[in-house]
Design a binder for these strands. Sequence first.
DNA 1: CATGAATGAGCCTTCATTCAT
DNA 2: GATGAATGAAGGCTCATTCAT
Lengths: 209, 209, 209, 209
Amino acid sequence: MSPKKDLTEERKNQILDAAMKTFTEDGFHKTRMSDIAETSGLSKGSLYWYFDSKDSLIIHLLERIFEPEIKDIQTLLTDPRSIDERLETYVERISEDMVKMLKWMPLFYDFVALAFRQESVKNTISKYYQRHMDILTSLIKQGLDRGELHADSELEAAIAIGSMLEGTVILWFYDPDKIDIKRHVKTNLKLLLQGLKTPLNYQTLDQDN
Amino acid sequence: MSPKKDLTEERKNQILDAAMKTFTEDGFHKTRMSDIAETSGLSKGSLYWYFDSKDSLIIHLLERIFEPEIKDIQTLLTDPRSIDERLETYVERISEDMVKMLKWMPLFYDFVALAFRQESVKNTISKYYQRHMDILTSLIKQGLDRGELHADSELEAAIAIGSMLEGTVILWFYDPDKIDIKRHVKTNLKLLLQGLKTPLNYQTLDQDN
Amino acid sequence: MSPKKDLTEERKNQILDAAMKTFTEDGFHKTRMSDIAETSGLSKGSLYWYFDSKDSLIIHLLERIFEPEIKDIQTLLTDPRSIDERLETYVERISEDMVKMLKWMPLFYDFVALAFRQESVKNTISKYYQRHMDILTSLIKQGLDRGELHADSELEAAIAIGSMLEGTVILWFYDPDKIDIKRHVKTNLKLLLQGLKTPLNYQTLDQDN
Amino acid sequence: MSPKKDLTEERKNQILDAAMKTFTEDGFHKTRMSDIAETSGLSKGSLYWYFDSKDSLIIHLLERIFEPEIKDIQTLLTDPRSIDERLETYVERISEDMVKMLKWMPLFYDFVALAFRQESVKNTISKYYQRHMDILTSLIKQGLDRGELHADSELEAAIAIGSMLEGTVILWFYDPDKIDIKRHVKTNLKLLLQGLKTPLNYQTLDQDN
DNA sequence: CATGAATGAGCCTTCATTCAT
DNA sequence: GATGAATGAAGGCTCATTCAT
């Protein structure tokens, strides 16, 4: 009677959930399609009904990982507060997302490793990176335009903050016990802002001494 | 000492060279032991005479990758120059090493991905990271002790610089055309030093405004 | 009679048309039921409503291939012309049919190959072969009875002509550019008739010389 | 001590023997590589050490099937006997070979069916066909040149004999009980020779009547 | 009647590792 | 020490068939 509900999205999610879990636990290469089938509660054949191949799961998972991160952050561009307040909010939100995603790190690094040989993976990752950098760059440009920040270019400043964010996660990976991502990101930003709020000529003077 | 020993070292190097090349080009998982055998000019059987397994090559390669990085840097600890000059030299040398190692990045990220699942790989990577952080931390401690730098702790400052270094490489990976590692590392350090040279109470005051 | 029956026939034909096309183009083994479904414009489920299995399509297709060949030829048995005129007409018609069926050759040979393993396929093919040979044999028997032809038995002569017909198609398969089926069948028949019109004792005499 | 005998040929033969047997019994498509492995007494991996793929076995088997056929027949070209004696010897030898190969017929027809989709299979079959036809054509040309035979062209006559040979095997396939290949080939040749020994103008005259 | 999502047995091929020579 | 033939477990993917709707 019921008009046969479309289970496509549900099934795809079942599969992606299972893939995310098994890839994270066992690694992309060690995970077998039959593992994903079993974990998802579907048959091996069904996996291939909804997805083309094991590889194609990568792109879909990457989109899942990154998508939620982008939301909300854009609103900071029209936020009336000062630039450093907004940048603090920015890195706070990013680091919160990062912390939430920490458990998917093994998965993510499998994909980074794959990105070196698979253009499509590389492109997907780069696309999301670019979106973040665009927002960050716009934000900083506002600071420069208003004279709240000083830098040779908005890109250079964005790279400084971006590097710091990404790098903090790497350090966490090297030594999870010593690194508190949220706290260090906050501290690191403070140091960078100190530099970014210093007028350029003063910076140069200071260096020359 | 004995000529036999030398031949053994030579053979091991032949194999590791070949492994490094093929792993980098084709990825760890896609590379077959027969590829390494062929590239090294040895037989498959010989590979197993000198190394236990494909996995065991990983640790040996990691040591090869990191080993050259460490040397010379220690001397900075007794260098008579000011802290910020020495930190500049430090990040300059590190970024030079990084640039040299850029071609091994695919290999390295394969290993990072593996590190999540293989304790021994994780430990090897962490060990080298730790050595760097130790030097960096000592360096900064000198700066704090002499009043040249200001931070809540030497570790916190070291984390800031360390994150920035690692993160710059990540950004290069995301967008190799836009990121010039040596240049951005230098710029980023300048910003951080600005913060690190600002007395703590001034920092706080500044923030409150 | 009932309209339902007609729809059923229509559907079956849709399916058999599609199967014939796809089997011929891609081969029986490479063709998937979903290909046939798609080509026929029906669903996979419907295929199984009208046919039991992929294999069951074979027999139905064989009947389709052979059916048209039989008609009209029987009339030659009561044709008032001389035997060699009628045999000429016979091989002409057969070779015309063969030429028309050339495009189904790949399909047919798939089935011949299957016939070695599937009794039902073998029987279907043999049944149609037998019908042809029966007509040919009857025709020749008339020639022998009337003294127009000479052979140890009508079967032996029929085999000579039958082999020639089948064999010409094989040669066409081996070298399609050089073999013109209709022309060579005609020439070949002429040579055979020369032999069949020669009295037996003359044949023998001739040989002994 | 012994200089490690080269078992390559032996292994290849083991595999080809097993493939020939299983392909013939079960058909190319139904035969699994593991069946061949088991039958050959080797492991599945070894099959791939000696042969690239399941498909590559086809070509090697075809060469096995045809190769022995070619030998010896060439000597007929310089045989001093009359053409019809030599043609009789020719078809006798061919039909003997055919009879010996009858048990491989299922295998051969699998390959013929495959030839429609695989150029390499088609080429291999055609190559061997061509060799036979070349010999047959040369033989007949001698007959024409010496005036022992009469035909519009040596090719036309060769096609007549070739078709007859191939066709007789087909008829045997349709009805193995009734067809005695060696006997019918001999009879059929006799009929054709009758035609080939008749001068062309006589043939035409005869037809016109 | 019709659909197409779901199933799962099955297959070709790969490749790390071993070991007789 | 060195070789390379041999192994066999394992895995991604296919596809004929079924059946709930």
